[in-house]
């Protein structure tokens, strides 16, 4: 069973929940797909090792064959290629690796070479298998890293928990593609609710099954709860707000260590999720 944890707004507690679940449940693989800012490893006392480079293919021009006709640069939708009098310039960070240029070059003068944009790391401790992706600073495209990271999803593990990037744009959509269920972690504040609504709109377009976890319950107002009731969206769990949890979080201690009674609630949450799937 693959479960993705998303949020819309950043800082609502996706990572805390993902790590707490991973440390409580049996036979889990945890995947940190927030490749811009992967933070799960901070909460896990675990050594990780380099597993693979995340790469995208970029064009290489063979000037023995190139006639500078400019078909490649004229047709690149990302403006990653530019023809100047004596060569074709490549702006490699703009290249999405679609391969169009190499396929339409009439002289077959373009081949492709992989360019590293991040890495995939892995660790294992006790019962927990952990993978994460990390984008190199200065790179723009996280989506290909996420899709390569997801190739490391284990088929043997009973539960795979995927910590998604914030927002509702393409990196989030890539993360939740093909998962069985999505947990939306919301912070009950006006900003938290507004961002949650956008994520829910996206999940509905994608026909995903989802439920809500309200984190930092008590910090704001009751609008989020009311919204879930009105929209008939299941509230899977509420995690209270406390400064003690916040202080422990700051040191890398997930809330499950402060609220061990949550473990039982996780079990009933999972039972609810299984029912829905």
């Amino acid at each position: 069973m693959e479960i993705a944890i998303v949020s819309g707004k950043g800082g609502t507690g996706k990572t805390s929940l993902a790590v707490s679940l991973a440390q409580t449940l049996e036979d889990v693989q945890l995947i940190d797909a927030d490749v811009d800012e992967p933070n799960c490893s901070i909460f896990l006392d675990m050594d990780t090792e380099h597993k693979a480079n995340a790469e995208i293919p970029v064009p290489v021009i063979n000037y023995d064959l190139c006639t500078l006709c400019g078909i490649c640069s004229a047709n690149c939708e990302y403006n990653a290629l530019m023809r100047v009098p004596d060569q074709i310039l490549l702006f490699d960070k703009m290249c999405h690796g679609c391969g169009l240029c190499s396929k339409i070059c009439p002289e077959n003068a373009i081949t492709e070479t992989p360019r590293t944009i991040g890495k995939i790391l892995q660790g294992e401790k006790g019962n927990l298998l952990f993978n994460y992706g990390k984008m190199d600073v200065g790179e723009e495209l996280s989506t290909p890293i996420i899709s390569q990271l997801k190739q490391h999803i284990s088929k043997e593990r009973k539960i795979v928990i995927i910590d998604a990037p914030p927002g509702s744009a393409c990196p989030m959509v890539e993360t939740i593609a093909d998962v069985d269920y999505v947990i939306v972690v919301g912070e009950p504040t006006p900003f938290g609710l507004s961002d949650m609504k956008i994520v829910i709109e996206t999940l509905r377009i994608l026909n995903m099954k989802f439920g809500i976890v309200i984190n930092k319950d008590g910090i704001g107002d009751k609008e989020m709860e009311q919204f879930c009731i009105d929209e008939k969206i299941p509230i899977l769990l509420k995690i209270p707000f406390s400064l003690e949890i916040a202080r422990n979080y700051s040191k890398g201690v997930p809330f499950i260590k402060i609220l061990p009674e949550m473990a039982a609630k996780f079990e009933s949450m999972l039972a609810k999720i299984k029912e829905e799937i």
Binding site: E37, N39, I42, V137, G138, Y249, S250, G252
Partner: peptide
Amino acid sequence: TEPTLSGYHDLDRILQLLEQ
């Protein structure tokens, strides 16, 4: 930023970006 281990880690990365 915020004084949490996550905040520190993410700050470090965004500052590298600003330097670039």
